[in-house]
Nucleic acid binder design. Structure first.
Lengths: 138, 138
DNA sequence: CAGTATCCTGCTTGATACTG
DNA sequence: CAGTATCAAGCAGGATACTG
């Protein structure tokens, strides 16, 4: 608990962004992971969530609040402080999420193999799949 | 196996569409469920997936194919017949998906309560949350 | 610090019409 | 039947600038 969130917590290439299962919107899953070890401040969350704009982070947070997964607490300190933490309901999601991560790790290569096997013919347009589905969290 | 997919398999109101966990794109989760009991034809899938256009269903199917979750088989019968079925990889997703459904059923009321508690003040704009996250597949 | 207000872009979804 | 082609619309995500 209380360790300063690793900026590289989410590899921009690895697992996230390729799994066929997703939690909430683009950032929800990652946010929940960030809160796993206790409440975090708004600006603290922006570190591992590289590049997320204040607007979008606020939106995701509000969405999670609305669903009762996350709670917001404003401290009236000399400097403004707001902390976000998991509610019991939010915390209960960690179990299923772990199961998902386990599945992903287990089948990671198969997913990759399948993707490679389906694109190769094209050379100029290349790798980037316009892929609908399969955006991941975790 | 081989029973003619229930048209009401997916309640447009209930679970799906409110869960904070989603599988692939909007239809992927439902497609996988439809294939659980064996291969299905294109037009057969369109029944429970009310209103999905051919284009969108094709897209989702191609996406699932690309990820190696679903396989496509064209039969050269007198009439054109194409069947989609789960690959072993696709089938392996059923486990985690069941866990997700279990979570949803278990916490359904809490989700609903949280939503109700967060909107009521407004009367004219009403219920509809513009909600980002939380689109579901079940 | 913790947002809000605006504007903008691209993807995802969909309706409609046509084809092997 | 099983798609593809085209066009249109909505919304999530993001860049930038401003506020209590």
């Amino acid at each position: 608990m209380r360790k300063p969130l690793d900026p590289d917590m989410f590899d921009p290439v690895c697992p996230s962004g390729l799994t066929p299962i997703r939690v909430g919107d683009k950032w929800a899953g990652m946010i929940i992971r960030c809160l796993e070890d206790g409440p975090r401040r708004f600006s603290e969350l922006r570190v591992p969530l590289r590049g997320v704009s204040a607007k979008v982070l606020t939106q995701s947070l509000r969405s999670l609040e609305r669903d009762g997964l996350v709670s917001r607490t404003a401290h009236a300190d000399p400097v403004q402080r707001v902390e976000y933490g998991l509610t019991p309901l939010g915390r209960s999601l960690l179990g299923p999420m772990d199961a998902l991560c386990a599945w992903t790790e287990e089948h990671w290569d198969e997913l990759l193999d399948a993707r490679e096997a389906s694109s190769p013919p094209v050379v100029h347009g290349g790798a980037g799949a316009t892929g609908s589905g399969v955006t991941g969290a975790g």
